[in-house]
């Protein structure tokens, strides 16, 4: 019996949290340290290579899309509760709309960008 619709947000939060935990550290190291300092094989993130990889394969687009959007829902759920925890409970409906709305907006923006590659 569905007593509350929290489960959908909590599922997205959990999935996003797992994606961020597993994949973000290495990605940050790549875009923040390895590539800028030229520590990886010659320019692996160059336009030709990345553009080809993303456009020739829909699975690459899908995975990339998931990696970008799921952690947004992780942020939305967690940040919503953070704001409530620091005493903003009276605004909890507005906070929920802004947080989940923000994640949904980010998801739509991502969908548009990937659609247009």
């Amino acid at each position: 019996m569905a007593k509350s619709n929290e489960p959908i947000w909590w599922s997205l939060f959990s999935a996003g949290g797992m994606v961020a935990a597993m994949i973000f550290p290495i990605l940050i190291i790549i875009t923040g340290i390895l590539v800028p300092f030229g520590l990886a094989s010659d320019d692996p993130l160059n336009f030709e290579r990345i553009h080809t990889a993303v456009t020739q394969n829909n699975y690459v687009k899908l995975i990339f899309f998931i990696v970008i959007t799921l952690p947004l829902f992780h942020w939305a759920h967690r940040f919503r509760f953070t704001l409530v925890d620091v005493g903003l409970k009276s605004m909890s409906t507005l906070i929920s709309i802004l947080c989940y709305g923000g994640a949904i907006a980010g998801t739509i923006a991502s969908a548009i960008v990937f659609w247009n590659i």
Binding site: V67, P71, T82, A109
Partner: peptide, 22 residues
């Protein structure tokens, strides 16, 4: 809890990266 802000920040970064591809 605040780590989630940085997670979201990196999501935006990745989105911008893909946008630049277009």
């Amino acid at each position: 809890e605040l780590t989630s802000v940085f997670v979201a920040g990196y999501c935006i970064f990745l989105l911008v990266l893909v946008y630049k591809l277009t």
